[in-house]
Amino acid sequence: MHERHRFWQRALRMLSLGVPREASSALFGQDHSWQQESWLRSLQKEKQHVIDWHDRLIDIPFVIIDLETTGFSPEQGDEILAMAAAKTVGGIVTDAYMTLVKPEKPIPEPISALTGIEAKDVMFAPPLAEALRTFVPFIAAGVLLGYHIGHDLAFLRHGLWRHYRQKWSGRFLDLQPMMTLIGHSCPTFDDALACYGIRCPRRHTADGDVEAMAKLWVILLDELRKRGIETLHDLYAALSRC
């Protein structure tokens, strides 16, 4: 197990430095598994997309993410139960991802009541270290989006550091300040959904919330365009003035 984690630690570090896959294979030897090779290849492919400040928002790949967790603090032992994401371009979903995650500790009853995730549901789910190997390549292709995304990033960063000693440094944007930018005070995701009459029948499920956020993002893209906010630079500049 320790050898496996050391492999992924080295792989992530090499890719973050831009070392080509062929070179990293030589460094790690030829005894790594097909799954390891596949993950290296997908990560390298995702990292090839370069996003420029002056790219139009409708042309930029945005990846909407949501994590269901057992609490609010990974440092205090709270864990990820589910991870979902949707790749979008111009507000159109082009691909989606979802996985349950097997926690190390029992799921608290209030969390099961909120999310619908029970012990039997995660019995055969991958542990976090394994789930990250498919989730990270999926979300690496664009700018991350989420409602109060700081919560999700805290758990993502904690998991990557704990299992692979790797930091997440990708770009991200929070949908909540965008609501404020266009004139709506919506402290919670439920407030934002109510503002536009967006239904979310599977609220507090990772993929259900991602689906609802994708609908919200389509609306926000149009609202931003109407206000002359068309590029990534425009959006960051406008948010900095809020």
Rank of each mutant, 00 (worst) to 15 (best):
K105Q: 03
F138A: 11
H158D: 11
A140T: 09
A154N: 06
P127V: 11
T205G: 04
G116H: 07
C186F: 07
L144D: 00
T205K: 09
L173I: 05
Y196P: 02
C195E: 00
G197K: 02
Y147C: 00
A141F: 11
G90N: 06
R202G: 02
I80E: 00
R203V: 04
I182Y: 13
T180R: 15
F135E: 00
A129I: 09
I107Q: 11
E104H: 14
G90P: 12
T134Y: 11
F135P: 09
V122I: 11
P110F: 09
I107C: 13
V122G: 02
K167H: 13
I107E: 13
A131W: 02
A82M: 01
E211I: 12
A129H: 15
G91S: 12
D152S: 04
S185I: 12
E118Y: 15
P108I: 08
P106W: 12
E211Y: 05
H184Q: 11
L132F: 12
D121A: 15
R162T: 13
H204V: 00
D207L: 14
L173Y: 03
P110N: 05
Y196L: 09
I182W: 13
L81K: 01
I111T: 13
V93L: 10
L193N: 05
A119Q: 12
P106D: 08
S185F: 15
R157C: 13
L181K: 09
T99F: 08
I117M: 12
V89L: 02
L156D: 01
V143D: 03
G159S: 12
A131R: 01
T99I: 02
P126F: 07
R171F: 14
L144E: 00
M83C: 06
A192F: 15
T205E: 04
A84R: 02
H158P: 00
Y196V: 10
A140P: 09
